[in-house]
Simulated scan of single mutants.
Amino acid sequence: MSAEPAIKAVTPLELTGRVVDAAALIRPEKETELTARLEALENDTLAQVMIVTTPDLDGRDIAGYGQDLGNNWGIGDAERNDGVLIIVAPNERSARLEVGSGMEDLLTFARSAEIVEAMLIHFRDGDYTAGIEAGLTQIETDLRGASPDIMETKLAA
């Protein structure tokens, strides 16, 4: 009987704020600016959006990594499930939006893919900050431009 292979333990990143730049991609002054934008967005829409860069995905796919990270950190309101996580893993050349089920009517799979593609255009040029800002700008526009009845439903939840 052969022994089961060891499962690599996932090293969780520490939640230190609205921007967790573990891959050191964002200049400090830009991190401050992004944090203020994320705070204002949450104040305006109640949706909690976070940005994380990670030096590696611990051998996992970005979707599972992001889902686990979002759940472990408790991003978004538990009842509304309105968290959004922007994930950038430069060493794996990967980026993703992890979207809580309460936000899937606004940030659909197709829309999330468009936003990530807008980010990747900048990443290909080596400008991670511009890519992150481009993605966040589109998310801000979508959330702030959502029809009033959609946001009222979220506020009432």
Rank of each mutant, 00 (worst) to 15 (best):
T53H: 05
I86P: 10
V20F: 03
G126D: 06
D61F: 08
N81M: 15
G17V: 10
R18S: 10
A63F: 06
D58G: 13
P55A: 08
A130W: 01
G131T: 05
G100M: 07
I62T: 15
A22G: 01
D105S: 15
Y65E: 11
D127Y: 02
D68F: 07
Y65K: 04
T16V: 09
R124W: 09
N71E: 12
R96V: 10
L120D: 15
I87H: 02
I75M: 08
H122A: 15
D58Y: 12
T129R: 02
P90H: 02
R124I: 09
E29L: 12
G83L: 10
G17C: 07
T129A: 12
P90A: 08
V84C: 13
I62P: 12
I115N: 04
V49I: 10
E104P: 01
I75G: 03
N43P: 03
L38D: 03
N91T: 10
A130E: 07
T16E: 05
V116E: 11
E31V: 15
Q48V: 09
S94E: 13
T45S: 04
A118V: 05
L34Y: 11
G74W: 06
A89R: 02
A24C: 03
A23R: 12
G17T: 09
N72T: 06
G64Q: 09
A118R: 13
V49D: 05
L38C: 02
A78E: 10
G102C: 10
L15W: 12
E79C: 01
I51A: 03
M119Y: 07
I87S: 13
R111A: 14
A40Q: 13
I132H: 08
Y128L: 06
A130H: 01
V49G: 02
A95G: 04
E79N: 12
A130V: 03
